[in-house]
């Protein structure tokens, strides 16, 4: 089972990012679970969302305390706070200009700038998934693309969805 935790601020699309990952995993033949923290969520407040996927039925429930991957959409929350519960192999993807060399298995990617270039909006929840796809390799990029379309079909125009996907692909190409 793979467990992912996404940190962001309310309004940055962390919940949607979790839903996209889980749908893409669903398309790739995995059992999935996705959900978001609830209770004090509001625009600008630190929030978390979660995804589990597995080839076998998922029996675990609730918050993820020891994720296999942590995605941080907004480093101003405090990266050290966000990486709580990280394991030896946990991969950490941070939307940031600067590398976090002191954090093992971390990967900084300037997703917000790339997202801005295409969408003119300071939201990188789709763009950053390019880094996740490249590092994790479990889910084909085309399934993530399909999931982005499905998750946004009632919220965004086709044009806006395709701009987000372009940003995601550029992030994918930028990550080594």
């Amino acid at each position: 089972m793979i467990e992912i935790r996404i940190h962001g601020r309310g309004g940055q699309g962390g919940k949607k990012a979790a839903q996209i990952i889980s749908r893409a995993a669903h398309y790739s033949g995995y059992n999935v679970q996705d959900f978001a923290m609830y209770g004090a969520e509001r625009k600008g407040a630190p929030v978390k969302s979660f995804v589990r996927f597995s080839k076998t039925p998922i029996k675990t429930r609730g918050y993820i305390f020891e994720p296999d991957c942590i995605i941080i959409l907004d480093e101003s929350i405090g990266v050290n706070k966000c990486i709580k519960g990280k394991k030896e192999h946990t991969k950490i993807i941070i939307n940031s200009k600067k590398p976090y060399k002191n954090i093992k298995n971390s990967c900084s990617v300037n997703a917000i700038e790339i997202a801005m270039k295409y969408t003119k909006k300071a939201i990188c929840n789709v763009a950053i998934l390019g880094a996740w796809a490249k590092l994790f390799k479990k889910i084909p990029l085309k399934n993530i693309e399909k999931a982005v379309y499905e998750e946004f079909k009632e919220k965004l125009t086709k044009d806006m969805i395709s701009k987000n996907i372009k940003a995601m692909k550029e992030v994918y190409d930028n990550v080594a």
Partner: peptide
């Protein structure tokens, strides 16, 4: 609540 109501599964 939450464990079912807000958690998506197949």
């Amino acid at each position: 609540g939450f464990i079912h109501s807000y958690t998506r599964t197949e």
